[in-house]
Design a protein around this nucleic acid. Structure first.
Lengths: 166, 166
DNA sequence: ACAATGTGGTTGACATGTCATCGACCCTAG
DNA sequence: CTAGGGTCGATGACATGTCAACCACATTGT
């Protein structure tokens, strides 16, 4: 691999734009969330995924898989959220090792309070700046990349250690 | 703000896709970098920005601004990179407070060794999966978002404290 | 039944990022 | 020239994420 195909001007522009957008958008959304809801983005994601579930509760590993987090990270984060009363750990009847994470009433209140402002921010700083065609293209392109990464070589890219690669 | 405009199906798809892509792509690129160059993504970014500069050196705050990092974060990170011999801190003749960050020979070797593989990975996992039209669209859309965030309300979204917004 | 092995989750040590603060220095007004 | 106020960068305390064990339980084969 002496000389690879470097990025041409357009590709470079897309790549740099992506990185910059990533950073700025993150800062802005995080700022909004903490400011008017006292939540971090990770907090929001956890609460959001939990609240979308029929029973308001999920096995830790199920939640970790959905979020693409390592179990370790999630466990640490849940400990902190639990101390703030946003979630609760329950025993798993089906599997003695397991841990079921449940949204508490306070957690539900927090996500319901945060969601409108957060969605509005996502619109204001991203979605509403795009044409319908661009929204469509972004959806298509990101899903293609995700499928690619989750497929073929995706086993290596997982946060959790699950690969049969030893 | 009782009931905001929630995201419709397409918007939701784009937003979720973006978040997932973000996470998976990051994991994969970071994995590649550490594996075959012993660098983290932040390391790579620092070295990359430094190496693109005519003199291989930049003022700390100039570098921080380009990277959209806080000076504090950069200072901490540079301390670690300095200990590994990748960069050096030099005194700034023009401003006694200032600090000039220089790429060391080892740093240059590291970035040159890492770049081909990294670019190849960016191609393999992103750019080459996109049609030319999508590359173009991604460039356009990200830049529009960046301009929006860096402009109007961008002063608030900066990592460094610089805004006259008090 | 029970050893061997695998999996779910937690934990501690450590790497990294954030925030507030500080000392050193620059700049401008008087 | 010098006092006041700002900026540059470093630092310490703390929040967060990663990695490698580890324990408890489940599962499998015999």
């Amino acid at each position: 691999m002496a000389e690879p195909r470097w990025l041409d001007e357009r590709e470079e522009r897309a790549w740099r734009g992506y990185r910059r957008m990533r950073r700025l958008l993150d800062l802005e959304l995080a700022r909004g969330l903490t400011q008017d809801a006292g939540l971090s983005e990770p907090d929001y994601d956890v609460l959001s995924d939990l609240s979308e579930t029929p029973d308001q509760r999920l096995r830790l590993s199920e939640l970790a898989d959905r979020m693409l987090w390592s179990r370790s990270r999630l466990s640490h984060h849940l400990t902190r959220m639990q101390q703030r009363g946003l979630v609760a750990r329950e025993e798993c009847t089906a599997d003695g090792r397991g841990s079921v994470i449940a949204l508490t009433p306070a957690g539900r209140r927090a996500i319901e309070a945060a969601a409108p402002g957060h969605v509005a921010a996502v619109r204001r700083h991203l979605i509403d700046l795009l044409t319908p065609a661009e929204v469509e293209a972004l959806g298509a392109l990101t899903h293609r990349v995700v499928d690619h990464l989750a497929g073929e070589d995706g086993r290596r890219a997982r946060p959790a250690t699950r690969g049969p690669a030893a």
